[in-house]
Design a protein around this nucleic acid. Structure first.
Lengths: 225, 225
DNA sequence: TTTTTATCTTAGGCTTGCTTAAATTAATTA
DNA sequence: TAATTAATTTAAGCAAGCCTAAGATAAAAA
């Protein structure tokens, strides 16, 4: 079992690799984790000895398949916890990250699987990021569409909300917009491009700006509703 | 913020003090935590310096009000998590303890309060132990009665199950007996002292032995049902 | 290509929380 | 009360993870 620190190193390496093909440098990691380069070099040696990363002095770091598996496991735990904390326990979207950052390291597989089951095996977390499956597979974000691009009469699932603006996030929470929430587009007003949607059987008017911040995906069985 | 280790010391000291008026000795703590006496002596010095315990060399340890508050906070977290894991996420009664042992140290007050709220501010955990309130008050176990002592027609709440036997616990879980579950006594059979109860609208016959392992408390509004 | 600069690693040190072994204090018994 | 035994504390040391400062290597500039 990797320690909390080791899991965090592996997680960060995984994230840094997503944006770049080159090996990750020790200083990039040090920057992200806000620790010294020296500490990162030391840890690189240890992780390499455990077979979790491949590392050549001065040449940067790559995850081995074993290390990638650990990283994805941690990310899976993080994202499932975020979703659970937000949708089940009602913590604000601003709070869930820090809490999940701790929970991801101490939750057993069994507990995580129970949470996964409780949530109905969701594919995306409150930020719209894909939740790794038990087998390590990452769901693909296909057909990501803005609410403003949906059709009148269509029933959609919220799968991502731009969390750039905290005030917006709080407002959305207040009116009941949360991940996996069902939304029906009742009417699109042409003169101000706002949209009337039905949430929890209430009709609400959302401005163009808000409708552009909510990403949706069509329900597989939308026709049945 | 006390470290994980320090929280565990304080928690154990609190438990050991419950059974005895005398100060707790360092070796008792060492025994419980399965560490050396030397480590305990060292830690005693530190906790004393932080004002969490009162400690005189060779004379044993007592919690200060400050230390007691921390201990009760940890115990509150532990017991709320146990109940949540068992009743909401469906982990077995055997599993919840180890999981809660980790969760208790990394959960924010806010998260715990949300769990408390989600559970409806319960007073007892899956083992029937009282859950400290936010203010540190411990609910009293008054009127603890065995199911076998209940009245025919009475509607009761399960508040404690003797978890001495794992097979029994699993059986009870299977038939739906869990903490805070409502149980109605339908009939008491005299010839074998077994009891027919209604759980989830099903009638089940419980042997005398089982009925003696389930502790109940009368619902305040039993007459209204 | 050589020099300079930027990046990375090693060396030595610190803190937390543990260990074993030795020393000290308290308790028991003669 | 003194001697023995049991309990407790101190001393020295170890591992994990961090730090700063110094040294080594690679990259960029001259």
């Amino acid at each position: 079992m990797a320690s909390v620190s080791k899991e965090n190193y592996l997680k960060i390496i995984f994230y840094l690799k997503q944006h770049d093909v080159k090996p990750v440098s020790t200083s990039e990691i040090a920057n992200e984790l806000e620790i010294s380069n020296a500490a990162t070099s030391e840890m690189a040696k240890k992780l390499s000895e455990s077979g979790l990363i491949s590392y050549k002095k001065y040449k940067g770091i790559d995850l081995t398949p074993k290390g990638k598996k650990v990283a994805l496991g941690v990310i899976r735990k993080h994202r499932l916890w975020e979703l659970f904390l937000a949708n089940v326990l009602g913590l604000s979207w601003a709070e869930v990250h820090d809490e999940a950052e701790k929970l991801e390291h101490i939750s057993s597989e069994k507990l995580i699987d129970k949470i996964d089951e409780f949530l109905g095996f969701p594919e995306f977390d409150p930020h719209g990021d894909p939740i790794p499956k038990k087998n390590g597979k990452l769901p693909k974000l296909t057909g990501l569409v803005k609410l403003s691009e949906g059709k009148v009469g269509g029933i959609y699932n919220v799968i991502k909300v731009n969390d750039l603006d905290n005030e917006l996030m709080n407002y959305l929470t207040r009116i009941g917009v949360k991940l996996y929430k069902q939304i029906e587009i009742v009417e699109k007003l042409i003169f101000d491009k706002s949209i009337i949607v039905k949430i929890d059987n209430h009709n609400i008017n959302l401005s163009e700006k808000i409708a552009n911040s909510i990403y949706i995906t069509q329900l597989k069985n939308a026709e049945l509703n």
